[in-house]
Amino acid sequence: MLGDFAVGKTSLVNRFVNNAFSERYLSTVGVKIDTKPVQLPNRQLKLVLWDLAGSEPLNGAAKSYLVGTHGIVLVADGTRPQTLDAAMRIHEHAETLIGARPTVVLINKADLESQWRTTPADLHNARQWALNAWETSALTGAHVEDAFLTLAGAMP
């Protein structure tokens, strides 16, 4: 899970793994690891989710955390367009460290409609290079499972 701080990475994992949501913002230190078994059409898989503390650019310890990564969930906050640009830069940096990996893009906090500032074009652009992109909400759960399962299906 990569992205700028406070975009909702931990909340997305919490929604996907525990089907829960907390309004309280608790900054992640280092890395938080969760697991979730998923059933794909042709196989069962145990996803080990490494939720990295949000920072842009990636800090010096990032390479250690990224070793062994099979896929990337790139997260931005739809109410802060600058986090989408930050996500792109983070992704580019990660690729220079570990090479290309299957990636899905989640523009999160879709429930905050009145503050939404990214555009359909942003979503369209992300779909040009990522496996897929969604406007997600950790609060409502919208498209959260779609995103994780799509990535799981693309991983070895």
């Binding site: 280092g30 145990k46 250690s64 955390y65 062994g68």
Partner: peptide, 26 residues
């Protein structure tokens, strides 16, 4: 397996700081 490190083949050792598991241990 739960750390996702099973595939790591790092011959020079590895250091990861502040690793938090689902049970809250850090």
């Amino acid at each position: 397996s739960d750390l996702g490190l099973g595939v790591v083949d790092n011959r020079h050792g590895l250091q990861l700081s502040h690793v938090q598991l689902g049970d809250g241990a850090c």
